[in-house]
Simulated assay, not measured.
Amino acid sequence: MKKIGFSGTLDPITNGHMWVINEARSLADEVVVFLSENPAKKPKFSAEERKSIISLSCTEQGWHNVSVVIVRGDYTARAAKKQGVECLIRGIRTTADFDYENLIQQTNVDVLQGAKTVFVMPPRDLGSVSSSFVKALEGPIGWNWIMKKFVPGPAYHAWVLSWLRKEWETLWDYEHRDATAIAHADDWFARLTGPDCYGGAARYYHNLDHLVHGLCEIRVWAGNMRPDPADVDIIKQAFWFHDAEYGHHGDPAAATNEEASAQMWLGSHLGQEMDDAAELIRATDHFQEAAITHRLKDVLLSVDLAILGQDDEVYQNYARAIRQEYSHMADDVYREQRGAALAHLCRKAQQGLLFGNAYFAEQYNERAIDNMQREMARLAAG
């Protein structure tokens, strides 16, 4: 077969869709993805954004025989046939899927004189993966780590940026800002999520995932504890910037990451009162815990350390990311230094001192001890 088509809204494309596309590649020389633009639907991503995400996802897999066409104002099966595509491919996960797809197939051929349909059945682990399923994951703490398992990298990256964008716009009250202020905030969002900050390729842990997880922790804490909304904004401002500057400084005279991040925040001129959040950023310096005080310090540090108390899968992702972030260290040196850091944190947790905020201590302290002890055992075993 020369050409085969695959159609859908694909908002977002999932690993289930990617499996079907790959099956199509085994049946034809060329695969055309027909991306339907339905005015009745309100997709998360525009048609052009979805086209880019699909193209990037296929390129990431090395699939160079896949093209994407946006269908506007026509039935997909009819548009496919006009482009020389005689067959479409669809994934069937359940009997309900079959009944629906069979009806669509009959309509496509008998009514529209469009392309016929070939059905394939995905493997069991992808049987429940759909765009609706993925969308339903968003929200609770750890949603991003779960979603990552079900969508290709470019789709995940686009989704996380979209989520962070909403958080950013809410923080800076875009609805009531003028065009100049919004443009300024837009520039800073692009900078913070871009390659020189949290979006950097070498950011294995202090990255966009870290931003999403921490902001979710802050949201849930605020929802449970009902603090002053002004304090919540200060914590969010500090969290957005607290690891913006991150590196391995060899010069003892150089500014710490925390001080450099505080200076970046002050230089952003995003708010009217900047000093409070700057001091809170400085307070995240774990090497100066006793020296720097701030009324919100315990909350922000607890947010930062909450990753230690997550379920095993999330913790394992975190531990692997930390190892990658310190890939410049030899294994024996890393095991020694990481083990010492974990032993210090574990002792603090056992003494009830790891999480300075009572809410986070109740949520995460015991699990953090278990996670760190298991990691220390693995490090000791080599």
Rank of each mutant, 00 (worst) to 15 (best):
H184C: 00
A222S: 14
G214N: 11
M376R: 08
H242S: 02
G352S: 09
Y204Q: 09
K236R: 15
N357K: 12
F239I: 01
E366Y: 00
L215K: 08
K51P: 12
Y246M: 05
P152T: 05
W143D: 02
G247K: 10
P229Y: 12
L171N: 12
T293Q: 13
G8N: 04
A319P: 11
I369L: 03
H157P: 00
G309I: 04
T95N: 09
R203F: 05
D187A: 13
V71A: 09
A244W: 05
S128M: 14
D370Q: 13
E313V: 13
P229N: 11
N22E: 14
Q363K: 15
I369D: 05
K41M: 09
W145Q: 12
L126S: 05
E49D: 10
D97E: 06
A201P: 02
F133I: 07
A291S: 11
V232M: 01
K81R: 15
G200I: 05
W172N: 02
A185V: 06
I92Q: 02
G356L: 10
L266T: 08
L345F: 13
N317Y: 14
R374E: 10
T256C: 11
Q106K: 11
A96Q: 12
I13C: 11
V220N: 07
G199Q: 01
K3W: 13
G194P: 06
L126D: 07
A222C: 13
K236E: 14
W168G: 04
D304T: 06
R367V: 05
V31E: 06
W240I: 03
A349D: 04
Y156H: 13
A349E: 07
A115H: 12
A340P: 11
P43H: 08
N144R: 05
S52P: 00
F287Y: 12
M225D: 10
A47V: 00
I92F: 09
L280Y: 10
F133M: 15
A40E: 15
G339C: 13
V232C: 08
